[in-house]
Simulated scan of single mutants.
Amino acid sequence: MNELFIGILYIVPTPIGNLSDITCRALEVLKNVHLIAAENIRHTNFLLQHFNIKNNLILMNKDNEKKQTENIIEELKKGKKIALVSNAGTPIINDPGGILIKKCHILNITVIPLPGACAAITALSASGIINKHFCYEGFLPAKKKIRCDLLSSLKEETRTIIFYESKHRILESIQDIIEQIDKNRHIVIAREITKKWESIYGAKANLMLQWLKEDKYRYKGEMVIIIEGFKNLKKNNLPKKILDTFSTLRNFLSLKTSVLITSQVYDISKNNLYKYAIKKKNDKST
């Protein structure tokens, strides 16, 4: 292949709400490329019209991704410069285009990513959760069993966890977080980031569910759920008065009953008490 005729694929982030968040460089690229591959042509047209940009668009969505990848590759081979955009935010993270980018790398076609808006990172920066390590899990699964299995697998994930969720399932998902992770785990919901009704609220999972139910407008729009990571239990993590109560109950009751009563009295995680009991038993046996 003659490299003189190989084009460039630009990955162009677009605003997640406030149109003013688009970068000057993104506008320059969208204006000057030969073609824009858009996840939704009507949505992208609105953006282009707002900034008085006229350009050619083709549809690239999850239904035609494989076919359009081949078409776009052919245009890139001819030396065309093409921009890839999603409905909002940074492309590829939750959108079609991954097949195209992989093919470009295989064929040594230049891929240039532009920095820009991303709802997950924007929400994380304002969450107040202090942890330099995080994991992004995308949208929570729609089916309850799959969603619960995923949440259960993340119960002891020490990194901050980021999810996207829709208004239709947010109450169910928070309930599942309570049941599968911990009712006392701190979570933050960032809603409608950069838009008029933007709100950011954090609370323990059980209190978050109660807060949401108090006003249906609190779970309207697009949401990012940020879950504080699991904190490994250390010997001194639980206050002495809690450990004393637990130890006293263990003299008369089963482990399960002692854990249940202590967790209810002090409103703490049963998981932490179980871990404490196991650690104490192991310490005695060594």
Rank of each mutant, 00 (worst) to 15 (best):
A120W: 00
A119M: 03
L114N: 10
V29W: 00
L249Y: 08
K216T: 15
L107R: 06
L140D: 04
L243T: 13
S247T: 13
R250T: 13
N45Q: 10
N18R: 07
N108D: 14
D21L: 05
P239F: 01
E192Y: 01
I58K: 01
S263D: 04
I129Y: 03
D283Y: 06
V85P: 03
A190H: 02
I225H: 02
K220L: 10
E172C: 08
D21S: 06
D267F: 04
E3Y: 12
K213W: 03
L238Q: 03
V224D: 05
E3K: 11
T158D: 12
L27I: 13
K284E: 15
N237F: 06
K270P: 05
G202L: 09
I178K: 05
D95E: 11
K240E: 15
V12P: 03
L150Q: 14
I16K: 00
G138C: 05
A205N: 02
K103L: 05
A88R: 05
G98N: 11
I101D: 04
N61L: 02
L238N: 11
N272H: 12
K279C: 08
K213C: 14
E222R: 05
I93A: 08
F51I: 11
I112Y: 06
R218K: 15
E137V: 03
K31F: 01
E70T: 10
S173T: 14
K155L: 00
K31M: 04
I82F: 00
T160G: 02
F5K: 13
K195F: 12
T69S: 12
L207H: 04
K67R: 11
A117S: 15
I146L: 09
L48Q: 10
H34K: 13
L249Q: 11
E75Y: 04
A120M: 11
S152P: 05
R250K: 15
S127D: 07
F246Y: 14
K155N: 13
